[in-house]
Simulated assay, not measured.
Amino acid sequence: MTSRALNKLSAAQVKAAAPGKYSDGGGLWLHKRDDGGAQWFLRVTVHGRRREMGLGALRDVSLKDAREAATEWRAVARQGKDPIKERERRRREAQRADHTLGMVAAEAFEARKAQLKGDGKAGRWFSPLELHVLPKLGQVPIEELDQRDVKDTLAPIWHNKADTARKALNRLGIVIRHGAAMGLDVDVQVTEKAKALLGKSRHTPKHVPAMDWRDVPAFYQSLNEGTITHLALRLLILTATRSSEVRFCHLDEIDGYVWTIPAPRMKAGKEHRVPLSEEAQAVVAQASAFERDGFLFPNVREGVISDATMSRFMERRGLEARPHGFRSSFRTWCAEETDMPREVAETALAHVVGGSVERAYRRTDYLEQRRELMEQWAKHVASSRN
Rank of each mutant, 00 (worst) to 15 (best):
V274C: 13
M211Y: 04
R50K: 06
L172P: 00
A282R: 05
D60K: 15
P323V: 09
G36Y: 14
K195Y: 05
A11P: 08
K113R: 15
S222E: 13
D60H: 05
G27F: 04
K136V: 14
R327L: 04
K200G: 03
V61M: 05
V344F: 07
L172G: 00
W125K: 04
T204H: 15
H351M: 06
P298V: 01
A196P: 03
L131W: 07
S328R: 07
V14P: 05
L58K: 01
F41M: 11
S10T: 14
E346Y: 14
R4W: 02
G354C: 00
N170D: 10
A345E: 15
D185Y: 05
T191L: 06
C249K: 11
R362T: 10
R87N: 02
E52G: 08
K136E: 09
G226K: 07
T260Y: 00
G226F: 00
L169I: 01
A180W: 06
A155H: 08
K64Y: 08
L131K: 10
K270C: 02
K113S: 11
R50A: 10
V186H: 05
V104Q: 07
W213L: 07
D65C: 03
S23D: 13
A181T: 05
T153F: 04
A70K: 06
A57W: 10
P298C: 03
S244Y: 03
R112Y: 03
S277M: 06
A122K: 09
R362Y: 02
M182T: 02
L319C: 01
E52F: 03
A180E: 03
L6R: 13
V14Q: 06
R273T: 02
Y22S: 08
G120Q: 15
F41K: 04
T309G: 12
H178G: 01
Q115D: 12
G226W: 02
T71G: 01
K200S: 04
V190C: 06
A218Q: 12
A232R: 05
G303R: 05
K8R: 14
A11F: 08
A287M: 10
